[in-house]
Every structure is written in structure tokens, then in C-alpha cells.
């Protein structure tokens, strides 16, 4: 027996088919006759089909809705009683309530946003986003598995940590240090000379300050950590956009003096090796 959900999908399928035929016939710019009707009905094998994109989309809608309608009809609108029957249970199990904190959706959001910025601006952001998305996929999958490992939330967390800490801690260290060094090098390249002196001086001070903070207050609240991560994510995206707008600082060309012997740096360029160069190693 057809139920409410499948009826809706069959109606959608019927609409798609009818609309496809009318649309294809109406946009074919030929005299309305058998060819204009047979064309849409035979997917263009015989006769004419007008505007192809719209026709294809409408026919695809019809096929997709028909498939879903049949599927839903077989499952009796996914009624709980039908689901339980399919699962071989008396009642369907309750849906799992997400009762623990999980930051991976936010990380996934930032990763995809980073990919978007990278697609528009440059490959670095794209790679950052891709790495983020890969890590998210792995972590999310492990988390989904461990959340269902036992009925105890704390035991599940312990199982997850036992599996992932040996990978996460070294991985984070490598990513953290490498990413930090890379980021600072990019900043130094983008800044003018005075700015780079300042950054070069301030960064070690900042590292020192963060180290001192960790020693003084080893257990930060989750909100502070979340806030720092959020600010970091936003800084990466904003940095990407600003870098694209401002561009990388290009090294200035050296002004040649009249004699051509000295550049701006005051260093004498190396001359061509003279004939009196002593060669070693050949006897």
C-alpha cells in the first residue's frame, strides 16, 4: 500500500516527467507535432528535444524521485514499526544523543573554508584545508566508532584516547612547530624591513610568555582553549585573504651605481675568477 511519503515522491516523479515533456516540446522551436512529442518521450532518439539542460534536469528529477518513492514504499515510509521489523527487533533503538563535546565539525567547517579561500587565492591555503579535512575525516571516523564502543561515555573516551594519542601528540607537535615556522617565514617575507625586525624580536618573547602561562596555569578551561582555537582558525582565514589582497613583499631591485661596483648593501660583488686562480687537486 502506498503511504504518505512515497505518494509525495511518486507525485514529484510524475511532475518531473510531465514537465520534462512539456518543456522539451515547448522550447524546441519546431512546429508542435508528433516529432516534438515523440522526441522528449524517447530521450531525443526520435524527434526533437528543445532546451537540453532543463529537460535533462527534469528527467533526472523524475528518475530520482521514482527510485526514492519505490525505496520508501518498500520500507513503508520508514515507520518505526517497519524499521524494527527490518532490524529484527521488537522496537527500534533510541537515537544516540550527542552528549559529549566534539570540535571536529568546527574543524571541518574551517578546513572547507580554507579550501574555498585556497581555490580563490592560492595553493597554500588549499593544502592547509586539505590536510585539515583529511585529519578531520580520520578523527571523526574514530570518534564515531569509539562513541559506540561501550555504553559508558568515559570508557569510550579512554578507548579513543588510547588509540589516538600515540598518533595525535607527535603529529600535533610536527604540525605545530612546522606550521609555526612556515607561518612566521611567510609573515617575515610579507613585512617591510622594520616590521620583520619587530616580529623577529617579538615572537621569542611571545613564546616565552605562552610558556610561562602554561607553567603558571597548567589547566586552562575548555572555553579558553576553544576560544584560542577559534581565534587561530579565523586568523588563518583572514591571513589568507589579507595576503591575497596585499600580496607578497617583493625584494627591491638593487640600484646600480655609476661605477657598477657597489649595490645598496655596500658589499662589493664578486668579480669573475682571474686566471691566477690556484687550482687544487690536479697534479
Amino acid at each position: 500500500m502506498l503511504k504518505t511519503g512515497s505518494k509525495f515522491l511518486f507525485a514529484l516523479a510524475g511532475f518531473g516527467f510531465f514537465a520534462a515533456v512539456v518543456y522539451a516540446a515547448g522550447t524546441s522551436h519546431h512546429t508542435l507535432g508528433m516529432d516534438a512529442i515523440v522526441g522528449p518521450l524517447t530521450f531525443g532518439y526520435k524527434g526533437y528535444v528543445g532546451e537540453h539542460s532543463g529537460y535533462t534536469i527534469l528527467m533526472s528529477l523524475s528518475a530520482a524521485a521514482l527510485f526514492l518513492g519505490i525505496f520508501l514504499s518498500a520500507l513503508r515510509d520508514a515507520d518505526p514499526e517497519a524499521e524494527a521489523q527490518v532490524l529484527g527487533l521488537e522496537t527500534v533503538p533510541d537515537a544516540v544523543v550527542p552528549n559529549s563535546v566534539n570540535y571536529w565539525p568546527v574543524v571541518a567547517g574551517f578546513s572547507v573554508a580554507s579550501i574555498v579561500v585556497g581555490l580563490a587565492i592560492g595553493s597554500t591555503m588549499f593544502v592547509i584545508g586539505l590536510v585539515g579535512l583529511t585529519v578531520t575525516t580520520v578523527e571523526w571516523a574514530v570518534r564515531a566508532w569509539s562513541d559506540r564502543a561501550t555504553g559508558d561515555v568515559e570508557v569510550n573516551r579512554a578507548i579513543r584516547n588510547r588509540l589516538m594519542y600515540p598518533v595525535e601528540i607527535p603529529g600535533l607537535a610536527i604540525l605545530g612547530v612546522g606550521g609555526f615556522v612556515l607561518a612566521i617565514s611567510r609573515i617575515l617575507l610579507a613585512l617591510p624591513k622594520l616590521g620583520s625586525y619587530l616580529v623577529f624580536g617579538l615572537v621569542p618573547v611571545a613564546i616565552m610568555a605562552v610558556g610561562a602561562l602554561i607553567v603558571l596555569k597548567p589547566k586552562l578551561s575548555q572555553s579558553v582553549i576553544a576560544g584560542l582555537l577559534l581565534a587561530g582558525g579565523l586568523a588563518i582565514l583572514a591571513g589568507g585573504i589579507v595576503a591575497a589582497t596585499a600580496g607578497e613583499q617583493k625584494p627591491k631591485e638593487e640600484h646600480k651605481t655609476e661605477s657598477g661596483s657597489q649595490g645598496d648593501s655596500g658589499l662589493r660583488p664578486l668579480g669573475a675568477p682571474s686566471a691566477a686562480v690556484v687550482e687544487v687537486g690536479h697534479r
Binding site: 552528549n99 559529549s100 563535546v101 566534539n102 570540535y103 568546527v106 559508558d152 561515555v153 568515559e154 570508557v155 573516551r157 579512554a158 578507548i159 584516547n161 588510547r162 578551561s221 575548555q222 572555553s223 582553549i225 576553544a226 576560544g227 582555537l229 577559534l230
Partner: peptide
């Protein structure tokens, strides 16, 4: 995991952590 790990129940986070996670 049940034996060796120190399983300390955590309180439901509030504030920014509760929103982000």
C-alpha cells in the same frame, strides 16, 4: 581501557566550549 585509564567523569562543558563542540 576500563582498567588502566583513569576514568574521571567530565562535567558538561558550558560557555564557548559548549557552543563550539
Amino acid at each position: 581501557a576500563s582498567e588502566s585509564a583513569t576514568v574521571i567523569p567530565r562535567a558538561q562543558p558550558t560557555g564557548l566550549a559548549g557552543v563550539l563542540g
